[in-house]
């Protein structure tokens, strides 16, 4: 009895989780201009609007530039930190790691406002670059969390063995460590990419006159006329993120199969 009621609750909870997502395509293909039931009829107009929208195209391009840069930067910084954290002992390590991981427990508005204050104080003009700086700061702790798992499962004697067999420290890193942490690096890159692509408040504060995808969406949500197009955009984003997640899962499984490690669950 208890089992089935818990299962029923789980089902309701999934409905709660997915309701907003499921409604996206419902209204994206609905020909009514007002987001309300009953539905009017089927249309592709909103998707047509979407792909014809040049401001949106520019915002998307900006967001992709920022997200790709953030992904590369924070994963690189994450590799350094995860390697240092899992392989070396040094005095003051908890403090150093604490500072680096701090953005995880800071409200985003604090990160946004402190960065804004400093960037204005040193006279750096707000641009896509300043958004990349902010997003990298935010995404690095997540990258480290993912990479830590990958690096800490490395047996230290593997690198000693390579070193012992005549390789240098650098070639050991390239031949042994890097291939073994590649699934972690891919997960980290995807995660940072997604965090950056979706981030609003830091971008909103640091982008200056530039527009990113979330800034554009936020600006359009005020206009009821634009909402059906936003629904179409949301639908596309959902599909894109599912494809991205499936890819990530595929790489993770392949990495596991290659090294024969045990499956310990999702890449989260």
């Amino acid at each position: 009895m208890k089992f089935s009621s818990l299962k029923g609750y789980a089902f309701l909870y999934l409905v709660f989780l997915y309701a907003p997502i499921v409604l996206l395509p419902v209204f994206a293909f609905n020909s009514g201009t007002i987001i309300a039931f009953p539905l009017k009829g089927f249309t592709l107009d909103w998707f047509r609007d979407l792909f014809a929208n040049q401001t949106l195209g520019l915002a998307l391009k900006n967001s992709l530039i920022i997200a790709v840069s953030t992904s590369i930067l924070s994963t690189t910084l994450g590799v350094f930190a995860a390697r240092a954290g899992t392989r070396f002992k040094f005095p003051g390590k908890p403090g150093v790691m604490g500072l680096i991981m701090l953005p995880l427990v800071l409200p985003e508005i604090i990160i946004a406002s402190s960065l804004l204050v400093v960037l204005l104080a040193v006279g750096m003009p707000l641009s896509l670059f300043t958004v990349i700086l902010g997003h990298t700061l935010m995404a690095t702790p997540y990258a480290i969390a993912v990479l830590n798992a990958a690096f800490s499962s490395l047996d230290r004697s593997l690198e000693e063995a390579a070193y012992d067999l005549g390789e240098t420290k650098w070639s050991t890193f390239r031949l042994i460590i890097l291939p073994l942490v590649t699934p972690g690096i891919i997960s980290s890159a995807l995660m940072s990419f997604t965090i950056s692509l979706d981030e609003f408040i830091v971008a909103f504060s640091l982008a200056g006159k530039e527009t990113t995808l979330p800034i554009y969406i936020f600006s359009q949500l005020r206009f009821p006329k634009q909402i059906p197009m936003i629904m179409a955009l949301g639908t596309c984003l959902v599909v894109a993120s599912i494809v991205l997640l499936a890819t990530a899962e595929y790489f993770r499984r392949r990495g596991l199969a290659k090294t024969g490690a045990k499956d310990t669950g999702g890449f989260l």
């Binding site: 063995a161 012992d164 067999l165 024969g260």
Partner: peptide, 28 residues
Amino acid sequence: PNKRPTNMVFQSYAIFPHLTVGENVGFG
């Protein structure tokens, strides 16, 4: 270590998991 005339068999064997048996043996 990489310049010493010694080689080591590790307690955990330290077999490179992403390589084949032959690639492991021929690594050096």
